[in-house]
Amino acid sequence: MTKTTTCVYHFLVLNWYIFLNYYIPHIGKDEEKLKEFHDGGRSKYLTLLNLVLQAVFFGVACLDDVLKRIVGRKDIKFITSFRDLLFTTLAFPISTFVFLVFWTLFHYDRSLVYPEGLDDFFPAWVNHAMHTSILPFSLVEAILRPHHYPSKKLGLALLGTCNIAYIIRILWRYSQTGNWVYPVFAYLSPLGIIIFFSAAYILNAGIYLLGEKINHWKWGATVKPWMKKK
């Protein structure tokens, strides 16, 4: 893609995520059946947190596109570096993780993650917007331009820190309300929950390494973007 096409792509996807972040939290806000969905805000749902994350990433990508045209590549190296770090360690792994885990559990037993009653409030297109479209958008970004990956130690450490932070959020909410964010946890023993969380991080780490492989396959060994010749 040309630089102009890349800019347009980032702008369109950014606006799509801005729309979703505004629209979805307002669905059924006055419905008693959706009280649990709105109680505690979006920070308890990884799906909604991921939508915020994607909006932030594509916002940074748009800013990077614009500033490169205005002030030049070398003068915005911090923004370019932050863009790459955000995508490689969080945006790509988490969007892919949400897609894989949600649809695996959904097709195994949807009551574990997305009970049928939600269909009365969330149209099919909203479900796919939250859980399906996130993957192709991330894949397109992965092959659209090269991204500088940090060292594996740093990248996996950042990803692990975010995993732990979200696990603490889930456990804290359960200790306060007695309700699990996702029904699947109610069917697991304490040991099962530990295994689930451990497997989730292993999957996330595998996705991170897969993203690095895709980047290398498409672009070869890449140097930091601001070090490239104009």
Rank of each mutant, 00 (worst) to 15 (best):
G220N: 03
Y23M: 03
K68H: 08
L118D: 03
G117Y: 14
L12A: 12
Y208C: 11
W226C: 00
A55T: 00
C162F: 13
F57Q: 04
S81M: 11
K33L: 10
V66I: 15
R83Q: 12
L49M: 08
H26D: 06
Y201R: 04
S175C: 08
E36K: 08
D109Q: 02
F99Y: 14
N204R: 09
H147N: 02
A221S: 14
V8A: 13
A91N: 03
R145E: 10
I143C: 13
T132L: 12
G211M: 08
Y22V: 11
M130T: 08
N215S: 13
R73Q: 09
Y9L: 09
Y45N: 00
I202R: 12
F11I: 07
A61V: 01
A91I: 01
T104H: 07
S43F: 12
P225M: 00
R73H: 05
S198Y: 04
F11R: 01
R69C: 13
I170A: 13
V66K: 06
T161H: 07
L139F: 14
K77A: 12
K29N: 05
I168P: 13
F11E: 06
K229P: 04
A157Q: 14
L48E: 08
M1V: 10
E141V: 06
H148Y: 13
H216R: 15
V113D: 03
Y182P: 05
Y23N: 04
T2W: 04
A221N: 14
V101W: 00
K229V: 08
K224F: 09
K44D: 02
L85Y: 12
I134H: 04
Y17T: 00
V56S: 00
I168F: 15
V60A: 08
H38I: 00
A91E: 01
C7T: 13
K152N: 15
L210K: 07
K3S: 06
K29H: 08
K29G: 07
G178P: 11
H10Y: 00
Y208T: 09
C62W: 01
H148V: 03
S43H: 12
I202Y: 13
S138K: 05
P93H: 03
R110A: 04
R173N: 12
V13F: 04
I214H: 01
K213H: 15
V184I: 14
Q176E: 15
G220R: 03
L203H: 10
Q176R: 14
E141H: 05
T132E: 10
F121K: 04
P93M: 00
S189G: 09
C62M: 06
L203W: 02
C62R: 01
L105D: 05
I18Y: 01
V113T: 06
A186S: 15
F106Q: 00
K77I: 02
C62H: 04
T5R: 10
L86T: 09
Y187M: 09
Y9K: 03
K77M: 06
K152I: 12
I70L: 15
S138R: 03
F78N: 12
I170H: 09
I195R: 14
S81L: 10
K224Y: 09
N204G: 15
T177C: 05
K229A: 07
F137C: 11
C7P: 02
N15I: 03
V98L: 01
T104W: 07
V101M: 10
T161W: 09
I194F: 13
L100T: 14
L118Y: 11
F19K: 03
I134D: 01
Y114D: 09
